[in-house]
């Protein structure tokens, strides 16, 4: 069964992003929303972790949250898909279940 994981915390704030990645099964996906969109930016201390995890699962970041925080879409790690709220809805229905990491 495929699962969509959503995360909303900055990886600089706490370990939610790393916990989520460590418990994400192979055919699952991660959607970064709210403060978690910071995770998918290039040249941070988490960039390498995200890049290597992209081999195992798909990752998405919510565009309105990136834009709201002044984060350039050009600086998003390659391979991370930038999506809107309607895509967020599609992701929840395309996966078998959803886990929101709070």
């Amino acid at each position: 069964m495929s699962m969509l994981h959503t995360v909303n915390k900055s990886p600089f704030e706490n370990s939610t992003v790393t916990s989520c990645i460590s418990m994400c099964a192979k055919d699952s996906s991660i959607l970064f929303i709210e403060d978690a969109v910071i995770s998918v930016m290039k040249s941070t201390k988490f960039t390498e972790m995200i890049e290597s995890s992209l081999k195992d699962f798909k990752m998405y970041a919510l565009k309105p949250d990136l834009e709201a925080r002044g984060l350039s879409l050009n600086n998003v790690i390659e391979g991370v898909e930038i999506v809107g709220y309607e895509d967020f809805v599609d992701l929840t229905t395309e996966h078998d279940s959803v886990q929101s990491w709070l």
Binding site: M1, S2, M3, S22, M23, C24, A25, S28, S97, V98, Q99, S100, W101, L102
Partner: peptide
Amino acid sequence: SRAELSNIMSQQDIVMSF
């Protein structure tokens, strides 16, 4: 282990995290 947990979690219908 986390690997086992990941497997158990992905078999759930509803996961609520608190």
